[in-house]
Each structure stands twice: as C-alpha cells, then as structure tokens.
Nucleic acid binder design. Sequence first.
DNA 1: AGCCTTTGACCAGCG
DNA 2: TCGCTGGTCAAAGGC
Length: 200
Amino acid sequence: MSVSSVLPATSLTQVPAATSTYTTQPQMPPSMEGSQAAMTESTNYSLPEQRLQQSSSLNVDKPADDGYNWRKYGQKQVKGSEFPRSYYKCTRPNCLVKKKVERSLEGHVTAIIYKGEHNHQRPHPNKRSKDAVTSNDHSNMQGIADSSYQGITTNSMSKMDPESSQATAEHLSGTSDSEEVGDHETEVEEKSGEPDPKRR
DNA sequence: AGCCTTTGACCAGCG
DNA sequence: TCGCTGGTCAAAGGC
C-alpha cells in the first residue's frame, strides 16, 4: 500500500475499490497518540458487535461482527501501525468479501476495512454464525451496526441489504461516498466500544 | 467430523 | 532494478 504510517483513515481515502474501513479509536492508547485520532476525523462508532466476541473457540480476535461469518486467513504486522492486522474472508462460498481488522494490544479494534459486498444475506443468529451473534442477538448489532455504518460509511454494504448494497455499491460509485470512494470499501472507525476485558 | 485460528512463506505492486 | 510492504495461500493444531 502506500500509506505507511498511518491511519486507516488515510488508507481509506486511497482505497480505490470497495472497502469500508471502520476505525476504532479507543481512548487512544499511548501508542497511537494523535496520529490517528488527529486526522481521522474519525467517526467514532462504537460497534457493540465487538463485544459479542464469540468465545466459542479461544479468544480469537473477532472483529466487529457484522452478522456474517468470517474466517481469518492471515495476520500481519503492518508498518504503519504497531498493531497486527488480521485478514478475514466471508465464509460463504460465493461471497468474496474480505475484511481487514487492526487490533490494539488491548484488544481494541482500531480499524476495520471491508472489501467487497456480500451477495447473500446475513446468516441468522440462530443458525450457526459464531461471529454473527453470540451474546445478544441480532437486534443489537443490527440497530447499532446499521446506524453506525450508515452514518459514516455510506456504503452500507455489508449490513442489512446485501442486495441493495450490492446494487448500491455498483451503481453508486460516488453517491454517498464521495470521499471514501470505493463503492465497496467502507471505512469505519470504531470507538473502543470494546470492553473486552477478557473474553472467555 | 468439521471449521476456524495460527504462523511462516511466497507473490505482487509500488517507490 | 532493488528493496519494502501488504496481501494471500497453505499446513498444522485446537476446539
């Protein structure tokens, strides 16, 4: 990429395609200082989803659960941030959506970047979406996630209307997201809505 | 039994 | 052309 030191916000600006980045800015751990916060006008969106953290397996860093099932396929330490970045893919066979999540040492999600659009609906919580819902359920994430996403990301793609989002993303190439751009990439900044004391 | 997470290595793009 | 970084794949292990 290009951005090397810096915040997700920047990245999203460059994001060409469809990528939504949700940046969570906790209370600014000493490490991030103001670099991120400073520029990222950050829209602090607290995604409660994160707290859901399915503790099904271990304490995997489950990013913000948007209701879909994700599979982690890689993790890397990027230069810009001291936090490792995790790469997730939608487990749906035909869904190529990917998600990049940056987490702070404390477990706060500093940034989430969605790439692509889900061509399917969100799995039902009751079914087997481990990340989808674990603690509360849909209502919770939906309401919030939607609000948050909509507010900022504009692309609202992977949220409620995968369909419309799809169409939207494709059709609108610059409708609401003029700056974010990337019909498909959505950047979101999350606040540290993640107590994440110690799952499990 | 199946799925997911973790880790290392490899590949591609950009400066 | 070389080096660096980001992103992805594959294998192994664990739940």
